[in-house]
Design a protein around this nucleic acid. Structure first.
Lengths: 289, 289
DNA sequence: CCTAAATTCGTTCAAATCGTTCATTTTTAA
DNA sequence: TTAAAAATGAACGATTTGAACGAATTTAGG
């Protein structure tokens, strides 16, 4: 909850001496703000960033008012998805936050967390539902919770610079799933793109307007549901013929099966978030040289 | 008109004690004006100057929740909606955050902010769109931004106690707008309800399951779009006949026009978020006595 | 205009933090 | 292996902070 911490709080949380924390602040290892009287105040996001880059762990998270960790930070990501699925099904917001924050602190990349934890958790939830072990409302509530946690991760990612390359994306008309596109926005920002999600259920004509006005370097389209396939293909191809030369089209989503992929053009098709990340990294380094 | 802040407001904004702010005023670290009765009044520009110059580092206003726009008063809240609409259309996340946090720090209630700022801003955006001054994607991006800010407000609201009365709600099947239901969740939590939004596009059968399993004291249903009216009415009435006696049904949304309202039963119909808040307050105080 | 409720004032005081120094432990390099 | 360099943790008086209090001021309504 709290935005700021004193050196003493931080020192107790990670069990080092207060002196060390103060020294790190002075050496700018932990970027620090100061009160008018000269007392150090450490911002949560800076602390998280520091913890990720150092080998220190939060031994006593309760000192910082952070969700209580079960013990040590999670190095093994496998079981996390199931744990998260359980927490999402139960509607346990604290637990969700704890799992994700722990993984983030353990230096797992955001894209990995998205793929192996979030996406996988919802796959687990889907299976449960098919077995009759979960209600629809549990899945929906889980989506709400997940979106909230994703937004919180968003705040831990540094704000992209003004001159960062622009990326734009969303989910097309008829597609009601905006979690994927929000995750892509998050991961691209984590990779220093100026990424903006336009949300879901986007008519093609407004995508066209957005691409024209913003002229991004990268455009992503998440396709989880297609109302009318031939309409979709026609609209998409018109969009691609207009911008495909100047903008990298990244497409993905479970509705884009092979039949459809054969009929459309794109720069890359991605099965998961890490594919998107890799492509974005390649594109950016190519643009630099 | 110059924008004044009291030491208490400033202290909340920059997360120090009121005593410290007062002391800094007295030491002339923060240039201060005084009322006839000797109360301190801090001008926004001086506050920003203080934060910039205070000791070492430049302050990150977005972290501090620094009020960066106009002050309080009901007159100004009108303009806030237009300012927010502009910021949402531009996709200016920082500005959105500042406007809303500013209003929050000026101690406007969250329900007021929802009604007179968020809802109104989207009404402004709708008008712009009708005049051809705004693209659809700008509105959609605005929704994404607004949701993010609402989630941030969520974090400022204290976690409800375990024994707080339970409230549950969402938007029915075919309804894709979850902003209203997320705002209701937020406001109810602000009123010490254990409120949970199940999201949007909820089939009635899963609402039934949720009500059965959670047995809340209050159930809200946001209705902004109805695919098939007779189906909706039938499903709703079945739900009401099952739970209407034990659970307070709160309904609202622009799709619930008079014709439909005549054919369904509910505890209250709400035109805006403050109505929901009032009803919830009444319900809670009634339950206590 | 007046009253009542809410806010802010000025003050005091205990607790926390500051910067600094120094002995000890850990790491690095010869 | 040994010596130098660097990092750590503890201690100190001086300073800053946050919380409390009755008194004074502002604000909201009738």
């Amino acid at each position: 909850m709290p935005q700021f911490f004193t050196p003493k709080q931080v020192s107790r949380a990670i069990q080092v001496s207060e002196s060390s924390v103060k020294r790190w602040c002075d050496k700018d290892i932990i970027p620090t703000q100061y009160t008018a009287g000269g007392h150090r105040r450490i911002v949560l996001s800076e602390l998280i960033e520091f913890l990720r880059c150092s080998k220190h762990e939060i031994v006593r998270p309760e000192v910082l008012g952070l969700p209580a960790t079960s013990g040590q930070s999670i190095r093994v990501i496998d079981r996390s998805a199931e744990q998260l699925a359980e927490a999402l099904l139960q509607g346990d917001e604290e637990q969700c936050r704890r799992i994700v924050l722990d993984l983030y602190l353990a230096e797992h990349s955001i894209s990995t967390i998205c793929d192996l934890v979030f996406v996988k958790a919802f796959s687990v939830i889907g299976n449960r539902w098919q077995c009759g072990d979960a209600e629809v409302y549990q899945e929906r509530r889980g989506c709400e919770l997940a979106m909230r946690v994703i937004h919180e991760l968003h705040k831990l990612v540094p704000i992209p610079k003004e001159d960062a390359p622009v990326a734009l994306g969303g989910a097309a008309e008829g597609d009601l799933y905006n979690m994927a596109t929000t995750m892509i926005e998050l991961v691209l920002r984590d990779n220093h793109w100026n990424a903006v999600s336009l949300g879901y259920n986007l008519p093609f004509h407004t995508i066209e307007a957005a691409l024209k006005q913003k002229s991004p370097k990268l455009f992503w389209l998440s396709v989880n549901h297609i109302a009318n396939e031939s309409d979709f293909i026609q609209s998409y191809n018109q969009l691609y013929s207009q911008f495909g030369n100047s903008i990298a089209f990244v497409v993905g989503g479970r509705a884009l099966h092979e039949d459809i992929r054969k009929q459309i053009q794109y720069a890359t098709y991605c099965d998961n978030i890490r594919h998107v990340e890799s492509f974005a990294q390649t594109l950016m380094s190519a643009a630099k040289t």
